[in-house]
Design a protein around this nucleic acid. Structure first.
Length: 431
DNA sequence: GCTAAATTCAGAC
DNA sequence: CTAACGGTCTGAATTTAGC
């Protein structure tokens, strides 16, 4: 049976979330900024029309901002995560087979659904808008790659009214549509691959669909070969309904101001490692190695640069924050050099294994014993119940002069009572 | 000259 | 007021290390 896979994606997700709770943002150029208020990572249509590009540094577009009154908001991930859950739960009612692909999009398997999928897509749009206030577009195709493409068409071509079902087009109609879309729009074709494809004369989606698989395999990777097959309707990438545990866990952040002293770096490394260890325990895993890195800003060409990192294998895998922090501070001591303006630090956990069935070190007692288990889950429980950082390691620091900039963050409307009472209140700066 | 490990590359969002 | 350019994750390809 021909597959029917839908991809549902929220339009301008972060900006749309902000607009749900602050209607004054409607019809205005709005951007949501990355951590540290660095770059534009979500843009309203009005902001896009003014030429604000994805990833543009905020401080560099201040002229445009003043000229057009562009509103720049700090990102509010607690809000976006909660809104995402609402969208995903709502969509799950439309099919039991759902892959949550990212914070704002999911695939639904609609294979064998005996109904008009275009109308079904409109139903989804209506219900999501009514229940969450968010606008979505729906794309349907016989593979995930085609569903992504269908979603792109639904978003860009207004005559589709937000829903595009490629399965109901004839081969000729399909090819006509594909001949008008740049090859770079295809899922898995980024900037580099797009330009290489163009050199080879493959400019449109239709060109790529018709390309010889053997030739593509030779010129590119197996990934691109799969993409070509998927464009032709052969499923190579299945839905992954249960998300497998992470194989690496990273926590890093740019500082609000550069720091020079060891203690500030040590505080930040402790904080990041605590976050990483929480994520690790949440997925019931242990980490076998720890990586720590620090660096100066790559953009400051007139200042001395330094970037270094160190990977430490653990004697036996663990999920104990205290042990992971201890090791990472040991590593930090070895890579720290005085006299530099550090802009960023981070930690990474790798060689992640399931908690059950750990291979212990032959020569030493496993540190992650029952006491450690009890302590860590008590900490996690308290923080879940009472809010993040209700209990923490003292070395995470209290003043945190290095903490990231968030100059214009909206309240946590949906997850915090004190945020709820501020709905409609525009106390937070609107500029 | 082989395999395994480490690093780099490219991509997604 | 000033200085300011994100964060996490994956899998494949390529390079390097160790025997």
């Amino acid at each position: 049976m021909k597959r029917a896979i839908a991809l549902i994606d929220v339009n301008n997700f972060y900006v749309s979330c902000e607009r749900v709770f602050n209607p004054k943002l409607k019809n205005k150029p709005v951007v949501v900024l990355s951590n540290n208020d660095g770059c534009a990572i979500s843009r309203s249509n009005e902001a896009k029309a003014l030429g604000v590009v994805m990833g543009a540094p905020w401080f560099k577009m201040q002229e445009l901002v003043k000229q057009h009154g562009i509103i720049g908001l700090s990102s509010n991930y607690a809000l976006y995560a909660d809104m995402s859950n609402r969208v995903m739960t709502t969509l799950n009612d439309f099919s039991p087979n759902q892959e949550v692909y990212s914070i704002d999009e999911c695939f639904l398997d609609l294979t064998g659904f005996n109904r008009d999928l275009k109308a079904y897509g409109q139903e989804m749009r209506g219900r999501i808008l009514k229940w969450t206030g968010l606008p979505v577009c729906v794309g349907v195709g016989s593979t995930k790659t085609l569903a992504k493409l269908a979603n792109h068409i639904a978003k860009k071509q207004s005559q589709f009214d937000g829903v595009c079902n490629l399965n109901q087009l004839t081969e000729d109609e399909l090819n006509k549509v594909f001949s008008n879309i740049e090859v770079g729009e295809v899922w898995g074709v980024g900037r580099r691959l797009a330009s290489k494809l163009k050199v080879l004369g493959i400019n449109t989606v239709l060109d790529l669909k018709r390309a010889d698989p053997e030739y593509i395999r030779g010129q590119f990777s197996v990934v691109m070969a799969k993409t070509v097959s998927e464009l032709n309707g052969t499923v190579c990438i299945e839905l992954e309904e249960i998300s497998p545990p992470r194989k690496q866990i990273l926590s890093s952040r740019s500082f609000g101001h550069t720091v020079r002293d060891f203690n500030s770096l040590a505080e930040s490394i402790t904080l990041y490692m605590s976050r990483a260890a929480e994520k690790l325990r949440k997925q019931n895993s242990f980490a076998g190695s720890v990586h720590v890195y620090i660096r100066t800003s790559p953009f400051k060409l007139d200042e001395p640069h330094y970037s270094n990192g160190m990977t430490i294998p653990m004697p036996s895998p663990t999920d104990d924050s205290r042990q992971l922090v201890k090791i990472s501070l040991w590593a930090l001591k070895r890579i720290y050099r005085p006299g530099f303006n550090y802009a960023k630090a981070g930690v990474m956990l790798s060689e992640i294994v399931p908690k059950a069935g750990i291979q212990n070190d032959l020569f030493s007692q496993p540190v992650s014993n029952q006491k450690s288990e009890a302590l860590m889950s008590a900490m996690d429980d308290i923080n879940r119940k009472m809010g993040r950082e209700s209990i923490k390691l003292a070395s995470e620091g209290f003043k945190r002069p290095w903490k990231m900039r968030q100059e214009n963050k909206s309240p946590n409307y949906t997850t915090d009572w004190s945020g709820l009472v501020r709905i409609g209140d525009l106390n937070f700066k609107l500029r």
